[in-house]
């Protein structure tokens, strides 16, 4: 985030601790990372629940974390919709950067 001029203190961490809250949040596993409300890698038809999230890296490998390039692209896309007159420091908060986690 800092390399994009974004304020990393705007990251919101949320614990998803129950099946009910996972379903309510559309939580497909830990970690789920949303930028401006959008998942950095769409979960597709993955069921919601308290599980470990499977990410597909750009080289095809399975990983417990998203590809850093996907995360960067999501941040770039989110900041692109911010008012050009707005200070970049606020972009992270305005973009609604969030990270939801739970038992992996």
């Amino acid at each position: 985030m800092e390399s994009l001029g974004l304020d990393s203190t705007t990251i919101e961490e949320r614990e998803v601790a129950t099946d009910d809250s996972a379903e309510r949040e559309g939580f497909a596993g830990s970690p789920t990372i949303r930028v401006a409300g959008r998942d950095v890698q769409a979960p597709g038809d993955e069921a919601t629940g308290l599980t470990c999230r499977l990410y597909r890296l750009r080289d095809g490998r399975i990983s417990p974390l998203p590809d850093p390039a996907d995360l960067r692209d999501a941040l770039v896309a989110a900041t692109a919709v911010v008012d050009p007159g707005e200070e970049m420091v606020g972009a992270g908060r305005d973009a609604g950067t969030g990270r939801a986690g739970g038992p992996g």
Partner: peptide, 8 residues
């Protein structure tokens, strides 16, 4: 089966 670490 489902754990990404186990798969990796």
């Amino acid at each position: 089966n489902h754990c990404p670490y186990a798969i990796a």
